[in-house]
Design a protein around this nucleic acid. Structure first.
Lengths: 322, 322
DNA sequence: CCCGGTTTGGCAAGCGCTTGCCATATCGGT
DNA sequence: ACCGATATGGCAAGCGCTTGCCAAACCGGG
């Protein structure tokens, strides 16, 4: 039983004694209609409980009131937090969010962009691995905000990747470590490349690249031991968990014998044993900024880049060198 | 530049030498059109790269090719996995998924259902806390599949909550424990109530209820110690992490002095120290089943309930009683 | 060959909204 | 009072698609 009580523009118009077109203007073109009339219309809108039909609106005008978020892995809390934040912000603007999981595969990424684009006002693409040009083409003209990826003349919000490395290495050095290793992430990631460059500049040893997973970290332990490192900074928290696991399996005490520092500061990083020292990736701030940036793009502003500063979160997986 | 001038039904019709209405039928009413003509139309569709305009389709016919998933917390990997699985299945059916995070609050839950409903074919609502009647009303006639919540005459897929408790308690008893405590979840959750009932029936002590968070578990440690329990089964993995954390803080060795068993089997449960024994909530299976069930509802089938059996995942946070 | 029944495909009426184009009202200035 | 500029709101043409209705074509049996 479909009780389609959905009031239409015409209902509102009739009740307010104006033309439907006028109602439409009141709702979408502030200032275009006389204040007095507008008030009358608004009253009618409230009275009949009018809710615009998005499909009709999109058909006629092109506006969808929807945004898409594409993440490499929704199961990773870092991205889940971004999605959550975007969703929260979108709700405030009466927009809804479509999400797609690309499984870090360029083809999935592109097909997601391509199939979602026609039905959203804009997209937020997180840590894309596909070439930015192909993404843009797949988006069919819809504005895009990239997260943790930069490019020529594109809107983006990203954590300062150089600072991530600097902050971690500084922390470790201040603890007296000088046998420090930085773990490389998959080279398909822009962030991984940025960090690698900085590590090189800092003259810090690099391990990997390994896949940014638990197993990736686990597999690293031999290399760490063999290299005689006393501290290691991983690509992300999950990888750090792997290192922690590997250390535990080998009976290596953390932080006494090995200091481990992650990246992202996902909620779980505070729940491990020992709690993980990590560099906060500010997921919520990033998510919020991405949505705001998309909003400004939609408003016609030129592409901008927002850089957010990472912050050290010192917990118990790092300690003074023994 | 933009060769995406989106071919329309008319373009296809012209190219195939038929009426637009016929093309529409070929695309949406299998068998309604002569096979020969249909083939010609399909060829034309492929030739011009036709992609149906969802907005127009929804306006005219009501079908949206979209489903909504509402979760209490997308940041919890259990739900993230469900969303991921739904998204995966939806992609195969060329549907997209809208997600909303209700923050476990009934009002948010209802407003999400209400605002999403008009623009989706159906909804999957996970662990709702609101009264099912109000949810149904908010959905304005759209079919709903509930996850981990049962109700009279509604479609649902849920883990057998009784079995979750049974399986955990059996595991613990087989290890020799007889001072076992089961942690209650928030009574707003159907699953929490079901488990509580079973625990009572099994004659097992219950602790809490506590919020299903790390802090909730952390706070439990005193009660556990004071109660002299040698084993505790928590409401979910995150709560178990809290208990693990509390135990570590008090110098209580797990599993030697205390066995801890979680529930959900989120990926992180394998990454803790010690790795957490848990009852698998089969997120992916649940997500998949929910989407399939929604599909059958959409096809006109009557509401059905799918029960999935939980499975023990024995790891290292449980051991024989000392 | 004829006839009623069944396919098949054309036709056009919308679905609810936005927006360019106009006609009319309004208004300040002279 | 008169005039042009400007603010206001009506009008209707679609946006791309689905679908009920109907006519033409087709089928098999008598």
């Amino acid at each position: 039983m479909t009780n389609r009580d959905t009031a239409t523009l015409d209902d509102v118009a009739r009740r307010a004694g104006v033309h439907p077109g006028t109602v439409s203007r009141v709702l979408t073109r502030p200032g275009r209609v006389n204040e007095k009339t507008a008030a009358r219309v608004q009253a009618a809108v409230a009275a009949v409980g009018y809710r615009p039909n998005l499909a009709a609106r999109q058909l006629a005008g092109g506006k969808t009131s929807r945004v898409a978020v594409i993440v490499p892995d929704i199961t990773n809390p870092y991205f889940a937090e971004i999605v959550q934040e975007v969703q929260l912000g979108a709700r405030q603007r009466s927009e809804s969010v479509l999400v797609a999981d690309s499984r870090q595969a360029a083809p999935d990424e592109l097909s997601a962009v391509e199939s979602l684009s026609p039905n959203v006002d804009g997209l937020i693409v997180c840590s894309p691995v596909a070439a930015l040009g192909t993404v843009r083409d797949a988006a069919d003209g819809r504005p895009i905000v990239y997260v943790n990826r930069r490019g020529r003349n594109v809107a983006a919000v990203h954590v300062d990747q150089g600072a991530v490395v600097t902050v971690a290495v500084d922390h470790l050095r201040s603890l007296g470590h000088d046998r420090i290793a930085v773990v490389r992430g998959p080279s398909a990631f822009w962030s991984a490349e940025q960090r690698s460059r900085l590590a090189r500049k800092l003259g810090v040893a690099q391990l990997g690249p390994v896949s940014p997973t638990y197993d990736g970290g686990l597999a690293l332990i031999d290399e760490i031991v063999d290299g005689g490192f006393t501290a290691v900074a991983t690509f992300n928290d999950v990888t750090a968990f792997g290192v922690l696991g590997g250390a535990a399996a080998r009976g290596i005490r953390v932080p006494d014998e090995l200091s481990v520092i992650g990246s992202d500061n996902i909620p779980f990083s505070a729940m491990t044993n020992p709690p993980l020292t990590t560099v906060d990736g500010c997921a919520r701030r990033v998510g919020r900024a991405a949505l705001d940036l998309l909003g400004s793009l939609l408003a016609g502003d030129p592409p901008r880049v927002v850089v957010v500063d990472p912050a050290m979160v010192a917990r118990s997986s790092t300690g003074i060198v023994s």
